[in-house]
Amino acid sequence: MVGAIRRLGTLFINGVWQLGFITRFFWLILVYSGQSFTRLHLTLRELYFSGVMSLLIILVSGLFVGLVLGLQGYETLQRYGASDSLGTLVALSLVRELGPVVAGLLFASRAGSAVTAEIGLMKVTEQLKAMDMMAVSPIARVVAPRFWGGVISMPLLAALFSAMGVFGGWLIGVVAIGVDDGAFWSQMQSAVDFRYDVLNGVIKSCVFGVAVALIAVFEGYDCVPTAEGVSRAITRTVVSSALAILALDFVMTSFMFRGQ
């Protein structure tokens, strides 16, 4: 009984300690960003590994999500004789929610886990310590470029995901089923507002980018320097990124889309 309470207390204190550490870590990344931007090719390299390499999975998943939305949306809308609104349904659900959220989840598992593994392994092989010995800040050299690579690629990937999804919905709705092409686009355009829908979706994806990139670099930097520790850190990256994305999405949706 006492043991259980003690464990609970340890868990709580550890949580608060980690929250403080992650905040300080975030601040350090921002401080060292300037120094790391002077060697821009480091950030470009990370942009390549987390952005360009995730392109294929994002595009293919976006297409499939769009195809499914087209089928399911048509099936439901045609019951009410509103199949012309298919474009609206596909575009709004992608731009507002599915684009940022699904792209964020895919990004966390594709790129976030890779970043954690890389930094974790550097810690295991004491490369980070060696950098410190040579007066090279590992945060400026290793962490900040990976962080910014993730932050920059996330909104671009989410936009590509949404665009691909709209294309998928168009393929199913207009090409395969035969919804009127003009009605599909014009209803979509009249219902989707740039500032209210598109821009809020972009803001969401930027916030997810910061959350996923921060969690990924932090878990790698903070991992226990053993083989088991690295594997646990990767698991934690995927799990806490997914939780952070979904929770942040709820919070932001409740601010952005109140349907006044």
Binding site: A91, P155, S162, A163, V166, Q189, D193, F194, V198
Partner: peptide, 10 residues
């Protein structure tokens, strides 16, 4: 893609 979302979709 962002431009597409801004001009063609919205």
């Amino acid at each position: 893609a962002l431009l597409f979302l801004a001009l063609k979709v919205g």
